[in-house]
Amino acid sequence: MTGYPTAFAYRIARSVWVGLFFFLLLPHLAFAQPVGDYTGDPSAFYAQTKQLNQFIRRFNGEEALGGNRFYPGNALYHDRNLRKGYLETLFDLSNPELTPSLRNSFTQQALDKPFFLDFHGGNWFAEVHATVLYQGKEEDITLFMKLEEEKVGSEWVFFDVYFAPFDKLFASPDPEGLQPAFLHPLSHELDFMNLSKIFRNQQYLESYAAREFRPDHFTLFLWEAKRKALTFKGVNEVKFHFFQMDGWYIEVSEFNREGRNRGWLISQALPLESGQSDLLTRFILRK
């Protein structure tokens, strides 16, 4: 019984706020006319989260509904209700995996703790899908990039690569009848003279590598690019993976579609238990 007036008051306050949110947005939509005589309705462009920078500003409640930047000291900077309004619009609402209860759970934690995304806070990276020309054929490549702080400023750097042709090159299990099947344990007494045998069939050299060997796509990519065997053609798609919020992973992708739920949006959100973030990172990096 004691909770009822509070819940009721909350519902009233929420309704007032939602009304205010759209009311405040309206004047900005009214100004949304192109220069010239084109009369199309560009209000969706206002609603669209146009840059990742704007995604972070909206997520954190650092932007007025008209798009002006809020700075610390402004009354609405990081305002809970402003953030709540924004957070409800920052999910890809066409994705059935992002259920209302999942979105609500994420939003509540982001507001209650509270949690803010930090561009320079680490624990996030970009996944860049691109096309390269490799051995005369167009191939997809995935570059993983992160923001690295420098003495002055910061820069995006590669930290990993996934390239399917490299996987194929190393994917074969030890072939049957491979001769020699291994380098016997007393090879050292012969000054490893039997090494010459395994180099006669260089295709399966990795069969003689240590168990922990994993081909390093990043180094191979650099090598192939340096010797001009691989030519970069262009970027196709970019997405971002954030592990900044305790117990949550979010993926942010760009949606170029009709309607107002478009631009940079949360395309995946997963609650994480302890240790799962490393596992998920390895999965994303295809390790």
Partner: peptide
């Protein structure tokens, strides 16, 4: 060529050469 009166100006970020960079959409 018509330009909508809709724009977004990012924050300015410092890059290693000492210049700032921003993006206008």
């Amino acid at each position: 060529v018509q330009w909508y009166k809709v724009q977004y100006i990012s924050d300015l970020e410092l890059q290693p050469d000492g210049r700032y960079v921003g993006i206008i959409t």
